[in-house]
Write a protein that binds this DNA or RNA. Structure first.
Lengths: 188, 188, 188, 188
DNA sequence: AATGAATGAGAGTTCATTCAT
DNA sequence: AATGAATGAACTCTCATTCAT
């Protein structure tokens, strides 16, 4: 992801990784409005250090998203390779919503585009995500467990909706996710 | 909706209504983080006037939501009385998402509880909404067009999700809403 | 005190008196920072009505002081006429501090000149007060109970100090007032 | 006085001290209602800098009071050690009122508790002050120059009163302070 | 004459970002 | 490279005063 000519000094790389981790946890728990100073404090670095690695708050958030997305995409491929093609998509969707969304306010806000535009911020991640989602969807369609008239973008939109539901009412989330995901199954 | 003993003076009522309208449009278009001063400017009043009618920014949100909710609830009853019980629920859901959601960031944010808690802010509206939704759902269930294993709260959650999808990508909204809403139909 | 050509209409006079009374109670209990709107509310009039009678907040406060001062001055003359010349001054000082000061934040603030300048605001009251104080002092000096080297202005200053003590710590006020007032007695 | 683990950076300490000094002068000259922005302007710093050092306006007051109190207490001990026990108390009281009070509205307001509660805000300062005052008083009582029936708290109250007198009318302050302080001498 | 709605200039406070150390 | 102090614009909210009703 990093394109700069020279690699980071070891301590700088450690700081960068630590900030990313703390920022994820903090955004996830408290949303995007947490002050940078607070993240710096929790990460045990100065605010200036965060700005050295991420020139704006939005950049920091984009980096967090890219980082997380990478994990999600990896999970998707793991399911594709190891699993049952007829259920991989549904497992994938449920796991994102239930595992991640449960504590992830920042991600929901970002996915819904409230404060940043994720397509702008992390186009590669977006693309990678749509790619794996498309493969999972195709597998399910070929296995006859998903309707033919939707594409990866539609499924992504549904996922955003599920994240919002999760954020809205986490108690209902599991049942409702099932209902919504049922909408993806073939009619009849 | 107004419960206070004496009615507002004509000019005050006019200002109040104007603020409410402008606030709705502004929140809808730009989200809940718009400054009160900006709303005041657009409404052509002083900031103090807004605070006279709505003692805090959150009160203003709540009032906007109540106002909008009232319209939504009215629409629901109109469909119940005039329409086909088997399709009223689906028409209702689609119309909320497509007509309103199209320009309504603030509503989505509020429904998803990002900045305010709508149950706290407007418990009557919430209740009225769940009531009409429940009636529409029961009608559909009796007509055999909706699955039996969901309740009004689940449908509400799904609606929140649809609003988020709408906000995320309005081009896909129509198709995706159909897919999600299909999840409410009886299996088989 | 009023100098305007035509007398107030009966209802206007009633309103004026009511505002004055409520303003006194409110300033006394809560200090000078109480909003005019709050006084209007408690008096059961509109804010505009207060401004009709008292063009600024400071004018209102001056009027309250004049009104109170009149009572104080009357009390002083009553003591002069009815009482023992050797004790009248001391009774007067103690009664002001203990009776009035106990609930009178606004008066202390004003006397100490924190927010308004009472000499500017109510020169006649100031003069009338100094006059009666001078007479009480002279009586005490002639009776041999007060030292000869102080004048009415010094006694007034001491009174201000006592009010401040009262406000600072009302439990100690009685004993401390006695101590301070003892300073006025002849040395030897 | 500072308890934090690590000392302030040199520039920060300079700014902190400068703010404290300017705040003292400004509160002293104009009372507690001066805006923070004005103090920032006079100190040549941004408003945010003041809030970094003193998280609320009240904290700034408290810090100013503590700072001043420290000087006062130091003066008291100097008098105790170097001076005549029979006159130290009286010198102390006069010097506080005449030297400090002359320009010190903010201190009077604070001592009298109009806007902040000094016992709450600076309990240690309060205690240290009462301690030195008690020692000065005991010395005077043993030397036979102060009456036996008062304690440090009463003397403190009297001092508050003197400050108020000073604020009320600085021309009379010297004579009146003498009169009041005379009240502390033994009767007869 | 009375009302109370409207005004708008600030108030205290926060925080993304910059920069001296 | 890292720090964290400083900045200052922006925010929400208050209230003395004015003015349409």
């Amino acid at each position: 992801m990093t394109r700069s000519a020279r690699p980071l000094r070891a301590d700088a790389a450690r700081n960068r990784a630590r900030v990313l981790e703390v920022a994820y946890e903090t955004f996830a728990a408290e949303g995007l409005s947490v002050p940078i100073d607070e993240i710096a404090r929790r990460a045990g670095v100065g605010a200036g250090t965060i700005y050295r690695h991420f020139p704006t708050k939005e950049e920091l958030f984009s980096a967090v998203i890219r980082d997380r997305m990478q994990h999600v995409v990896d999970d998707g491929y793991a399911l594709l390779e190891a699993g049952d093609p007829g259920t991989a998509l549904f497992t994938f969707l449920r796991s994102i919503v239930l595992q991640w969304g449960a504590t992830d306010r920042g991600l929901v806000e970002a996915l819904a585009g409230f404060d940043i535009d994720i397509q702008q911020a992390a186009p590669e991640s977006e693309e990678a995500f749509l790619t794996v989602l498309g493969e999972l969807l195709r597998a399910a369609q070929q296995a006859g467990t998903a309707r033919q008239d939707v594409g990866a973008r539609e499924v992504k939109a549904i996922l955003v909706g599920c994240q919002a539901m999760q954020s809205y009412n986490s108690e209902l989330a599991e049942r409702v996710t099932d209902v919504v995901v049922d909408g993806l199954r073939p009619r009849r």
